[in-house]
Nucleic acid binder design. Structure first.
Lengths: 343, 343
DNA sequence: GGTCGCGTGGAAAACGTTATCGACAACGAT
DNA sequence: ATCGTTGTCGATAACGTTTTCCACGCGACC
């Protein structure tokens, strides 16, 4: 089956194909790229030789010649659940575009080496890819003039095109759910205040209260800092209050799960005595006990759209909107119920 | 935002640096690569110009000239937990080697498009990377003469260098644990029989029994096929038996978690009435209820070693061993206890 | 004062492709 | 016959590097 062709010592080059077929390299090139100007006889003949020799064009040489690599890069801070989900969406969107997709990881070293992305972008991306998607929350200020789309950039607004989830609306969704269930004292474990996403979620929390005409107790807002330990502490403080909340809205699933654990530890049953809502809908949230009710971000979709935008930009088309925000949805699982105890 | 970023951002070329510095391109090249034969005066002068112009060498042109890209690729079937963990290990091992790391994903389409890897390897890998790590369980028969290392190739032995976990020893570990706890009727949910890893785990299961002198009831062996649904069904059958097992050893964590769910569904409490041991130690296994006792594979280490081997191969060194197998360890959590019920 | 060596710098040929453009034949129309 | 036309095909110049190799100037050494 695997017919061993010629002494394929190294790589078969166009020259060799041309020599074998008795034509010029120009002709071979035309055949390969389906250009007009070659008779069907020679076309067939050349394709025959090409497949017999197992010839594959050197993408490097081609890139050099065309100053296009036909490769799109996704730059992630680390391969955590969020980025990998984005990657899946991106991998999905890439097919049929004629581009290849590669992923680069900072290996979680982002905090240590600030400016990592800058260096990387100019070094690698600048020459090996035609465009890039950034999934590096903290850094979006890069000096690389190629097409770039940022996904979920937590830090303040950037000049780049972006794709984000609607954090404000998502928070409204989560808190409205709690409010609708009858909760009137809702605690919130907020995220790092320097991230816009966290601020938007907090704002949604406030707006939901305002819209429902429910007064807000400021002492019920705690900083969870997107870190699981601190989130646990925040939940602990909340539950130790003389008049503890009947529900907790966490800025992200990790914090929510931490809250769940603290509740279990304190012997508080969820959802009977305490309701918990998360944000993100990471895969783990379906496996917590009880399974977490949470606000889902369309992460895959975000990766998908980012690639689609990139492709458009490269094609030279104008983007309909440079800042795309995608709707979130509420995933109801078993961590929420009415304050009484009945779900 | 500057409007004039051309299709591919017009980069500074070596020519321009040379012109600006009043020297020849050869000299600039020598300076860039630190070659001998340039006076320290001109060296300083050129480096000055280089940084002023923000010049970065075109990796494409460089790759074409030296037929090396200095990029290593990791080819994954999909971005699931296992592969991403391998990727982290790889990203870790890559630093300091002078290579860059890129990841390619089949986008989970491996089953549909058999032979995907073959095409991809010859097309992309053959020309864009200097070597590749394969994390594509089912296919390892590729015709790409570059350096390749396969990680955890489930399918039969391949001629490629490989890195795998010691599945046999791992299964021994898990089953010995159960046996040591006092269990005498242990069920096993096995994996797809066409995968060597699954067969080795089953063999470890048998050997552990033999070593302990505990007779083995063949009716307690069920095919779980590495699929969560089928694993659930297998567990259900096992537990519906007139004389059900007091413990289940699952061929992987996904199956084990499925078994946990089935037990919960049937009102069987874990670990009081049933002990469950998994294999892999995926992140989710720590979050199941109860947290899963499981056999941990050093997945990161596998990625790390694969890259290290690749680098060695490219350097032309001989590999100490072409088939590396790494030790597994038992992670005791709360899904196992003595048959009576006391942990 | 001629060679020899040595320290510098540059010219030019690759690497494998693609696009441009001209050569050449065959052929119908004037 | 001449002239354009059409249809094939091949030379050739890039693309941006790196790497020989060669030229030049200048001390040093007999």
């Amino acid at each position: 089956m695997t017919r061993d062709h010629h002494p394929t010592g190294s790589r078969v080059t166009m020259q060799q194909v041309a020599a074998e077929a008795g034509v010029s390299v120009s002709t071979v090139s035309k055949v390969i790229n389906g250009r007009y100007g070659v008779s069907s006889d020679t076309f067939d003949h050349v394709t025959e030789i090409v497949s017999r020799l197992g010839y594959e064009a050197s993408l490097v040489a081609r890139s050099l010649r065309n100053s296009r690599t036909n490769v799109l890069g996704v730059l992630v801070a680390d391969f955590e659940p969020f980025s990998t989900e984005v990657l899946k969406g991106a991998a999905d969107a890439i097919r049929g575009t004629g581009f290849e997709l590669v992923a680069y990881s900072a290996g979680g070293r982002v905090d240590e080496h600030v400016g990592w992305e800058r260096r990387y972008l100019s070094r690698v991306m600048g020459t090996l890819v035609d465009g890039a998607v950034l999934v590096t929350p903290t850094v979006t200020d890069v000096q690389y003039d190629g097409p770039i789309v940022a996904v979920d950039p937590h830090t303040g607004r950037s000049s780049l095109p972006t794709v984000t989830a609607d954090n404000l609306q998502g928070a409204r969704l989560g808190v409205d759910h709690l409010l609708g269930l009858g909760h009137r004292r809702i605690g919130m474990v907020t995220g790092r205040p320097d991230l816009v996403s966290a601020r938007l979620r907090e704002r949604g929390f406030r707006e939901a209260h305002a819209a429902a005409g429910v007064p807000l107790d400021e002492s019920l807002l705690r900083l969870g800092a997107f870190e699981q330990d601190q989130a646990g502490d925040a939940a602990r403080e909340l539950l130790a209050l003389p008049d503890p909340p009947t529900a907790i809205f966490a800025a992200n699933d990790l914090s929510a799960i931490a809250a769940l654990e603290v509740a279990a530890e304190l012997g508080i049953s969820v959802p009977e005595q305490l309701s918990v809502v998360g944000f993100d809908n990471i895969p783990d949230s379906a496996l917590s006990s009880p399974p977490l009710t949470t606000v889902q971000q369309p992460i895959r979709q975000m990766g998908h759209d980012a690639i689609a935008m990139l492709v458009q930009m490269i094609a030279g088309e104008e983007l309909a909107e440079t800042h795309v925000t995608l709707e979130t949805t509420l995933v109801r699982r078993r961590s929420t119920a009415a304050p009484g105890g009945t779900p």
